[in-house]
Amino acid sequence: MSSTVLGRYVPYQSFIHRMDSRAKLFAMICLMVTVFLKQVNWAMTFLVGGLFLVFIMMLLLLSHTKITTFLKSLRTLWFMAIFLLIIYILIPRTSDWIAFSIGTFNVYWDSILDAAKILVRLMSMIALMLVFSASTKPLEMSDAFEWYMSPLKYIGFPSHELAMILSIALRFIPTILEDVHRIMNAQASRGVDFKHGGVKAKVRSVISLIVPLFVSAFMRSEELADAMECRGYDPKGKRTKYRIAHFSWRDLVGILVAAAWLGLVIASSVTHFDLFAVFGLEVR
């Protein structure tokens, strides 16, 4: 039984679930790009970033992903946040916007805000990926991948094979996780301590997990290859497809919304638009 919730498909029939995976991927990439566009000043950066976070929260709700799931997946981000903050503070700067000083060492607002900006970006990306993975079956993901890669087929790129490998890898994730769990339990029963011990002991305990895991994975892949061959699989042969995705009005809406947001953010970025200045506020 795995406790990983991030990246797990949650069966539901929401608007986002029912979108075509190709359209959804396109929309997601549009939205992701907006996160990285530079705005004219800090206030605008955080305004856009904040609005975007609110928007993604709505997507999360729409895709029936629990907010708690999102918050849980943010937990590991704490270390990252502190780490980032330290790095940014240590980077020498030439700025007059000092937050506080420790002795002769100045801590600048720019450093703190830079770290915060990265954090907001990371949060947005995690939330986006969460929405995508919770609402898209792994197979639909690999279908989207195959579709986008299919033009490359003509220059000899094995897009079908890669998509097949990807979909099988996705299919076997739960199985392999179960293997991990089972092997760890078996080795723990033989006195392996996966939690404590020095570097040497850690290496040994990891080997006792990795070796059987690989042996089992190789065995599985060999048997799977036999089974696929017996079922007439030939990557080069003529195949039909059972899953055929159809574009619908939902996809159009999804793409339009994402593209509109992308357009707005790009426009604001290139024109150095400052909403605060419009209202006569001076911000940094």
């Binding site: 079956k137 197979l139 979909s167 299919r171 599985r220 048997e223 799977l224 089974a227 079922r231």
Partner: peptide, 14 residues
Amino acid sequence: IVFQNPDNQFVASS
């Protein structure tokens, strides 16, 4: 042909 291990011949996700 149906093999021994139920997991290792289930190709798809449904």
